[in-house]
Every structure is written in structure tokens, then in C-alpha cells.
Amino acid sequence: MPAEKIGTTIPAPVLYTDEKVTGYENFCEVTQTETLDEGVTRLALRCDAEGEIYEERKFLMVQGDTMWAWSLVEGFDPTMTEFQRCPG
């Protein structure tokens, strides 16, 4: 799926940069990053999804062209999502 489709199709690619995370009908500003043990980075995010503003903590681990992301939300089991880098 081409990277220019970010935020417009399902399944949608997700764009992660140092400053933002953009997905399908949502946008998050990275407000803080912290590198933890074992190559894991914790992001503090301020997000807007269909007009709802919320804060989220997300964890990322990258190996080559593969990234795993998960959130810890009270009352929910953490779900890890695997991403592959889009070509070009």
C-alpha cells in the first residue's frame, strides 16, 4: 500500500515521525519520548480522533524494517501491532 494513502484507507498505513503519529482518522502530536531498556521507546501522545482529544502512552520497538507498537491502557490487555516499513 503506497505511503500517500496514510489516513485515507482501511487498512491504513500509519506514519510515525519524531513529531507526530498519523493514522486512519486520527492524528497524534508526540509530546515526550523516553528510551527504555531493550531498545524500547515510550511516547507520550496528545491525540485527536474524530474530534475527541485524548492522551496516550505508546511503546515502540524497531528492528530493521519492522516496528512493534503497543499501548498500556488500564482495564485492557496490551495488544502488540506489527508494522512493516512502506517502500519508498
Rank of each mutant, 00 (worst) to 15 (best):
P2A: 14
P2I: 08
A3S: 15
A3K: 15
E4Y: 15
K5Q: 09
K5Y: 12
K5S: 08
K5A: 04
I6W: 05
I6R: 04
G7M: 08
G7W: 06
I10P: 01
I10A: 12
I10Q: 11
P11F: 07
P13Y: 05
P13V: 03
V14H: 07
V14W: 07
L15V: 02
L15Q: 10
D18E: 13
D18F: 10
E19W: 10
E19T: 12
K20L: 08
K20Y: 11
V21N: 01
T22N: 07
G23R: 04
G23P: 03
G23W: 02
G23L: 02
Y24D: 06
F27K: 09
C28S: 03
C28E: 01
E29H: 12
T31V: 11
Q32G: 05
Q32T: 08
T33D: 02
T33I: 12
T33P: 03
T35M: 13
L36K: 10
D37N: 11
D37L: 15
D37E: 15
E38A: 07
E38F: 15
G39T: 06
V40P: 00
V40W: 04
V40H: 04
L43K: 05
L43Q: 06
L43P: 00
R46F: 05
C47D: 08
E50R: 07
Y54I: 06
R57Q: 13
M61A: 09
M61L: 13
Q63N: 12
D65N: 15
D65C: 04
D65L: 02
D65V: 03
A69R: 01
A69P: 00
W70M: 05
V73F: 02
V73G: 03
V73K: 09
G75H: 01
G75A: 10
G75C: 04
P78W: 07
P78A: 09
T79Q: 13
T81P: 02
Q84V: 12
Q84T: 12
R85F: 06
R85L: 15
P87Y: 09
P87V: 11
P87N: 14
G88L: 13
G88Y: 11
